[in-house]
Design a protein around this nucleic acid. Structure first.
Length: 496
DNA sequence: GGTTGAGGCGGAGTGTCGTT
DNA sequence: AACGACACTCCGCCTCAACC
């Protein structure tokens, strides 16, 4: 909408001098302060790289007219937080009030509230369309985005995909359960153990790398003592980087071998504990052992490489404990925050406590109760439901138009094969990126395609039975991705 | 005191081994 | 051959400090 009509967001700017920009739907970064906007519309300039952010406050019919005043208050709070504008989006009418939008506008006008707050109203959305609100939203009070009085809002500017960021390997239910246990311990005033038993050799290796570094901060990749960092360190050393995991080698006769250590976190498929830094032919520990056996390095260097990684001139480097802690933390704490199981200060939320108590009462994170609760949270809070809605409606459009879309003719028969599937996913992705603008590829890097499109998303959906698991029916002619709506609906109904 | 640049940091993407 | 699970890389803001 903003793309099509710049006057909606640059109301006071003469049309000739309006900047070129595009509009994206995004969300608040997960670690920001209250109040959280319902959505964010980012307006990056096509030239110059500058960007305005508009907070969105959405009111449902069910919230009733008292929601209108809250909306006004919240939109002002967003401006105060550093947004360049705010829009209030409300129903076109309530049973008790015929023209709510005009009412809100008159409140704004009579209080001389500046042009950065806009008002839009909507008719009942068409839920059968990929664009449920298309043509049903009306602008009542356009906005003029303006530089914020307090400068850029903290960690603004990160347009992001609308659904939760998860990683197949590192974001398992048990990882999240353990992380929440650390959060509950520390946020509840408990304290971390006096020592995590980091091996002496490791402690001295770190001091050789950086004489001033604190061992735990170095190996856990933290740099402050915020609650979030304390929780992270407790989780990392208690459940993942245990003394055994931190040990790079053991001796077997006269040769060095990887010690076959496991973390204390379970894999989602119930096949035991996951491994890190070893278990693959070219794992960090395996590489270190080979170098020890070849006489390239001595034991002291082995410990240093374990801590700091190995840089390889041709090909990928080997991450050491420190850098791996960095990427692992991102996978875990951003997921937990986006699922709204901890708040921005690191305090577990009611839902977070609920997940933990379900794990404890019903047999752990791989129990069916925990799986069900996690799946429901993915669909609802993690917005995977929204993702499926887009997939479904876009597919419907595509296949209604041409039931044989993407299919190949093989011996006179139309077949929807692996290639069709790939093309289909690519079309979905490009719709989401360019038309719906719910996905934004910011990266300018070259991208040889070795992961499949939506690989992480589809893997998780499969894990929870929202799309078929069996390889033989992952896609279907004339349908695309078959979605198990019964399961999705059940997940939608679960009270979180 | 503004400008520039290196490195820290949070975030988000791609790469690849081994199993299925 | 593709996918799941580990693994690694890169982006871009922010900070701090050297430089003009």
């Amino acid at each position: 909408m903003f793309d099509a009509d710049p006057s909606l967001c640059f109301a006071d700017v003469p049309s000739g001098s309006r900047p070129n920009f595009s509009a994206f739907a995004t969300q608040e970064p997960s670690r920001t302060n209250w109040p959280l906007a319902d959505g964010v519309i980012s307006l990056p300039r096509t030239v110059g790289g500058d960007q305005d952010d508009v907070a969105l406050e959405y009111k449902r019919v069910a919230e009733g007219t008292h929601g209108l005043l809250t909306a006004v208050g919240q939109s002002l709070a967003y401006i105060d937080k550093g947004y360049n504008g705010a829009v209030i989006v409300i129903p076109r009418s309530y049973s008790s009030h015929g023209h709510p939008a005009e009412h809100v506008v008159s409140i704004l006008d009579s209080n001389e509230i500046d042009g950065r707050v806009g008002v839009f109203d909507y008719e009942d959305p068409d839920k059968s369309s990929p664009y449920p609100f298309r043509g049903r939203i009306r602008c009542i009070r356009p906005i003029t985005v303006a530089p914020s009085a307090i400068g850029k809002r903290p960690s603004a500017s990160k347009p992001s995909t609308q659904w939760v960021h998860l990683r197949e390997g590192s974001t398992t239910r048990d990882v999240i359960y353990c992380y929440l246990k650390s959060a509950i311990l520390l946020a509840g005033g408990g304290s971390a153990p006096p020592s995590y038993g980091i091996p002496e050799e490791m402690v001295s290796a770190v001091s050789r790398i950086d004489a001033t570094a604190d061992v735990e901060e170095f190996l856990g990749y933290t740099s402050d003592s915020s609650l979030g960092s304390q929780i992270w360190k407790d989780f990392w050393f208690k459940y993942v980087a245990t003394p055994e995991v931190l040990t790079p080698f053991k001796r077997s006769g006269s040769t060095y071998v990887a010690p076959a250590a496991f973390t204390k976190v379970l894999k989602d498929d119930g096949s035991g504990h996951s491994q890190i830094f070893e278990g693959r032919a070219n794992g960090l520990k395996e590489t270190i052992c080979t170098r020890l056996n070849d006489g390239v390095i001595a034991e002291d260097q082995a410990w240093e490489e374990m801590a700091n990684g190995i840089s390889i001139s041709s090909g990928q480097n080997k991450q050491g404990v420190r850098s791996r802690a960095h990427s692992y933390r991102e996978d875990v704490d951003s997921a937990v925050a986006q699922l709204q199981w901890i708040d921005n200060s690191g305090q577990p939320t009611d839902e977070g406590y609920r997940f933990v108590s379900i794990c404890e009462r019903f047999g752990g994170p791989n129990s069916s109760a925990a799986v069900k609760y996690f799946g429901a949270t993915l669909i609802q809070t993690g917005h995977y439901g929204t993702f499926l809605h887009y997939v479904h409606r876009l597919s419907e459009e595509i296949f209604l138009d041409d039931p044989l879309a993407f299919s190949k003719s093989k011996g006179g028969v139309s077949v929807f094969d692996e290639d069709s599937y790939w093309e289909y996913l690519r079309v979905l992705q490009s719709h989401m990126e360019n038309d719906l603008k719910v996905l934004r590829k910011v990266s300018g890097r070259s991208r040889p395609r070795s992961r499949t499109i939506f690989q992480a998303e589809l893997t998780f959906l499969r894990k929870y039975g929202f799309i078929p698991e069996s390889r033989s029916n992952r896609y279907r002619l004339g349908v695309g991705l078959p979605i198990n709506w019964v399961r999705v609906n059940e997940a939608m109904q679960v009270e979180l």
